[in-house]
Design a protein around this nucleic acid. Structure first.
Lengths: 351, 351
DNA sequence: CTGAAAGCGCTTACAG
DNA sequence: CTGAAAGCGCTTACAG
């Protein structure tokens, strides 16, 4: 029966309205044969193949991925649940993951949560991807907990990229936040600071930043420094804790502030300007990430996280899991970054 | 018939393996009724509704979007084809579009092409989205031509965001690149420069950058300045043309270089440093975009494009088109940006 | 190498 | 208000 011209979402005459049956008819073969050519799996005679390919091209056929997925009970689609794309670290990760996915023949679709919303919104994004029944899932940093993922681990392989992961059912390819924290803390201590502030966001705001903050504080205390822990518990803003830091500096209680991200550190540098605080003469400031374009120009002392390595490895692992789940033993890998010297870390001011 | 335990992609016991029939059975209703509750369209008795909702929750049911889309011949999914996520302008756009889509109840999925590949790769991304039979499409800046989109316009509404658009079948919500170019050019001229370089990428590299470059050159020539057009035709790199600019400065032929993006301008500042050229004492440099985090700190003279306005308007229009195509008359809107003063534009050096 | 037919998990007239 | 049934556009055993 010919299709109704009213079929929504696929106007007649449009390539999107062309179905496999149309291709089959034009190529004078059965639908099954067209499918075989499309899949590239079964043997099809040379002549038939050419006819089918020609018909596809002539009609501008775009296979309906939806129907393919439903019929085959599988997809080449893999999903990426990405955190805040405004953050250059995630923007870069996004690009690298796509590049690698393409190399591996995986079709990447991405979902980003609304940056200013919390865990509920991230879960909605997760369901969007799961509803599409993606063949694999990459979860980038964010506030989704392993427990939220747990119910789905039997059905879909999950790789955590760039976020701390310790769940035994989730492969982890992360930045080594503890080592990173220790590297930055070590440099600050070596510069001679004895009393510093460390900005520590709540774990619900960012698991990575939380871990970095805690790591820096622990490391510095281990070295005998006096550490003021400054909480930053608001979601989607970087100004949290600035007031406290300024007060501490003014009171002569600290000579340096260690931020868990460049974003927070740079925001503070503007604030310091506004307050008339000179960096590094009056106080030192450090960040972490080191991937912002032009970071060297800004002179922020930071640590560069290995985004590309993490993307390459993450996709490699997911690809293996998608193809043969059993062949991959779950591990939690961590990649440390490299110190990025800058002009915002100096010796403490003489008092 | 109970499902085979081998069903791939949906292990038994996982919520992803739960089908609507399972929910129906547990709630002691028909599949049709479950569907009605899920859709929220038809009337269902209070009691039945509660039973169905309970069953869904107890089983952890995640509706199969694939099957829904196939059966309903429509989707709430809208696709965003985004250009290079490493570019902060697109990262910001991505975040804003998602925020707006969520407000409008649209489910956004994004596809990014591999940054270093060309138009073929972007077309593959387009097909990925079309294969999913998204209900609407937002196309961000990139090298895809209107002609590539044309065959699909009958079937799916398309809104161009942040990229020049002139096709009568595609709604355009763009940056006003011509005005933007004129603004920057005007400031350079006012600063007293009489001979400058304008970096002009090929249209296949970036339609937006191409337009900006041509616009700046035309405006300056209109003002009687001597303009050296520097081509930049490589894909995925910002260093193209740097050699030429350095030579022109060394030869005393120009006193300023106008780049069509901050990315290119910042890259050049590093090069200038390496060459021992002081900015703005020896030469002036300008960019365009103004959305990079910390841009003020870097001091680059630039122009800030109105990303949020474009995202808000683009999603608003797409939403209307998705709901009732006929209600929207195609237009091409343009939003100008605002000048961003910096330290890299000064008076020309005395010779 | 090729086709007829069942079935993927849903939605939606069509009846009641 | 609810159910039985057709059908969305495909893939894939099963036969030949």
């Amino acid at each position: 029966m010919p299709r109704d011209a009213e079929t929504p979402g696929a106007a007649v005459g449009s390539p999107l309205a062309v179905r496999m049956d149309d291709v089959a008819e034009r190529a004078r073969v059965s639908r099954a044969t067209v499918s075989r050519v499309l899949m590239g799996t079964a043997r099809v005679s040379e002549a038939t193949q050419v006819r089918v390919l020609d018909a596809m091209r002539e009609l501008g056929y775009v296979p309906n991925t939806i129907a393919q997925g439903l019929a085959a009970r599988r997809t080449d689609l893999v999903g990426l649940l990405l955190r805040d794309p405004r953050n250059p670290a995630y923007g870069l990760l996004h690009a690298e993951v796509q590049t690698e996915a393409a190399r591996h023949g995986l079709q990447l679709i991405s979902v980003v949560p609304t940056p200013t919303e919390g865990v509920e919104d991230e879960l909605a994004g997760l369901r969007r991807l799961l509803g599409l029944r993606v063949g694999g899932l990459m979860v980038s940093t964010g506030v989704i907990r392993a427990a939220d993922l747990e119910p789905f681990l039997d059905a879909v392989p999950v790789v955590s990229v760039g976020r701390i992961e310790e769940h035994p059912g989730i492969y982890g390819v992360s930045y080594d936040e503890d080592t990173n924290a220790a590297i930055v803390a070590g440099r600050v201590a070596e510069a001679g600071h004895r009393s510093v502030a460390v900005i520590i966001p709540d774990i619900r705001v960012s698991t990575a930043e939380n871990r970095r903050g805690l790591g820096m504080a622990a490391d510095l205390e281990g070295r005998g420094l006096d550490v003021h822990r400054v909480e930053a518990n608001s979601f989607g803003t970087n100004v949290d804790g600035y007031d406290d830091v300024v007060s501490l500096v003014r009171a002569g209680s600290i000579t340096a502030a260690l931020f868990p991200s460049d974003w927070r550190a740079l925001g503070f540098l503007d604030r310091a300007d506004a307050e008339g605080l000179r960096v590094p003469e009056d106080m030192s400031v450090t960040g972490i990430d080191g991937v912002m374009p032009g970071i060297e120009r800004m002179g922020l002392t930071s640590l560069r996280i290995p985004v590309r390595e993490v993307a390459v490895r993450g996709v490699e692992v997911l690809d293996r899991m998608v193809r043969d789940r059993g062949s991959v033993e779950i591990r939690h890998e961590r990649f440390p970054g490299t110190f990025l010297p800058g002009r915002t870390l100096g010796a403490p001011p003489p008092h």
